Amino acid sequence: MIAALDIARLGRWLDGIGVPGDGAAPVVERLTGGSQNELYTVSRAGERAVLRMPPRGADAARVSGLHRELRLLGALKGTDVPHAELIAGDAAGEVLGMPFYLMREIDGWSPAATWPTPFDRDPQRRRELAFALVDGIARLARVDWRARGLDGFGRPEQFHDRQVDRWLAFLSPYRFRELPGLDAAADWLRRHWPAGYEPGIMHGDYQFANVMYHHGTPARLAAIIDWEMTTVGDPLLDLAWALLGWDGEQPRQDGFYIDVSGMPGRSELLAHYEQVSGRSTADIDYYLVLANWKLAVVLEKSYAALVRGEAVDPKVEMFGPLVLQLLATAADLARSLPGGS
């Protein structure tokens, strides 16, 4: 609730960090759209920013996630990665009772279930959306994370060695049904780690829903958003995550959750990623198996909660068949690759 925020203390904090309007009370309005944290617009002296903080009573994991976002956005400041620029943050939670950070407001739009005009009917314009999406994650992949002070931000050593066991352990407490393809894909992943692995910053959930575009055409990425899953790991997993709506070379009309028909073929997007990031995509099939498999495991937790009567969002019901589809895709792709069976 907005009433729970101490507007006077927030105003004094804004004074202390040099936000225009010294001494004036900020106007604070609640925003919708944050799935893990609360969002507010903060306006003063004609300047608008966005405040992000965990809800009251948030557990330690969610608070830790916000600390990670705060650190990551600080590290990205001054880079060419599209993001909401960090103004300042209160990691200790001394000002509002919970940690928070303040970032520049982005004037843009984020994809939902359908594309806005003209992207809904112009195939050429839709191609631009995909290239812009891949461009953003390619720019993130080339950031020198050590030079940006992100040592200790993740555990990049043996990243791929841990993936299967980590996510199977994540699944174990709530597994309640047979999941065909889970073990076959897991076995293949254990035996086919990528030959070359260069650690880099990962978003962790990179997809159309987690970016914003500038208004108008041509399509240009305004910001990558929702950094809850960020870490230092393998950026190529982000690329595979972004390509889940493609069936081999071709984009699917049903995509993953939005229509991607008319977008570039996968090979065109891989070439663009390589050109911008400087990274090879030769092992992309491994990452596609891992992306389908891992997302299935993550979504199964929400679906299991629905089956147990613990989830209230009716959209979660679609996760039931989607999990099976993702696992089938992972297993089928693994079987079609060298070493598959």
Results as ranks from 00 to 15, higher is better:
residue 301 K to A: 14
residue 62 R to G: 12
residue 78 G to P: 13
residue 192 H to S: 03
residue 72 L to C: 08
residue 205 D to P: 03
residue 36 Q to G: 11
residue 93 G to T: 05
residue 7 I to Y: 06
residue 167 W to T: 04
residue 118 P to M: 06
residue 302 S to P: 12
residue 180 P to V: 07
residue 165 D to N: 12
residue 261 S to E: 13
residue 158 Q to F: 13
residue 318 M to P: 09
residue 81 V to D: 11
residue 222 A to W: 01
residue 137 I to Y: 09
residue 311 A to G: 15
residue 267 S to T: 12
residue 287 Y to K: 00
residue 218 P to M: 01
residue 146 R to E: 13
residue 148 R to C: 09
residue 13 W to A: 06
residue 168 L to R: 11
residue 10 L to R: 04
residue 63 V to F: 10
residue 247 D to L: 13
residue 327 L to G: 07
residue 18 G to K: 00
residue 31 L to I: 02
residue 273 Y to C: 07
residue 138 A to D: 10
residue 331 A to G: 10
residue 255 G to P: 09
residue 250 Q to M: 15
residue 337 L to A: 10
residue 69 E to Y: 01
residue 300 E to M: 05
residue 17 I to F: 07
residue 4 A to T: 08
residue 308 R to T: 06
residue 191 R to V: 10
residue 156 P to G: 00
residue 149 G to N: 12
residue 103 M to T: 03
residue 174 Y to W: 15
residue 300 E to T: 04
residue 95 V to I: 10
residue 335 R to F: 10
residue 325 Q to P: 07
residue 109 W to A: 06
residue 138 A to Y: 01
residue 184 A to H: 07
residue 20 P to I: 02
residue 43 S to T: 11
residue 64 S to D: 15
residue 95 V to S: 03
residue 335 R to C: 13
residue 224 I to Y: 02
residue 105 E to K: 08
residue 314 P to F: 04
residue 135 D to N: 11
residue 176 F to A: 15
residue 175 R to T: 04
residue 282 A to V: 14
residue 20 P to H: 03
residue 189 L to D: 04
residue 34 G to E: 08
residue 309 G to V: 04
residue 281 T to E: 04
residue 299 L to R: 06
residue 324 L to C: 12
residue 302 S to F: 12
residue 134 V to Y: 03
residue 173 P to F: 06
residue 322 L to C: 09
residue 208 F to Q: 00
residue 210 N to R: 05
residue 82 P to T: 01
residue 128 E to L: 07
residue 82 P to N: 03
residue 105 E to V: 04
residue 41 T to H: 01
residue 189 L to E: 10
residue 70 L to R: 09
residue 310 E to Y: 06
residue 133 L to T: 01
residue 291 A to T: 10
residue 41 T to G: 06
residue 285 D to N: 14
residue 203 H to G: 06
residue 127 R to W: 08
residue 233 G to C: 06
residue 222 A to Y: 00
residue 174 Y to F: 14
residue 211 V to R: 03
residue 140 L to Q: 04
residue 196 G to L: 15
residue 37 N to G: 07
residue 264 P to Y: 02
residue 102 L to Q: 05
residue 228 E to T: 07
residue 50 V to P: 06
residue 188 W to R: 01
residue 28 V to Y: 05
residue 320 G to R: 03
residue 246 W to E: 00
residue 90 D to S: 00
residue 1 M to F: 09
residue 219 A to G: 11
residue 88 A to D: 13
residue 134 V to I: 14
residue 4 A to C: 05
residue 3 A to D: 14
residue 233 G to Q: 07
residue 209 A to D: 15
residue 56 R to M: 11
residue 203 H to Y: 02
residue 307 V to E: 13
residue 215 H to A: 09
residue 322 L to F: 09
residue 248 G to S: 09
residue 302 S to L: 09
residue 326 L to K: 02
residue 39 L to H: 05
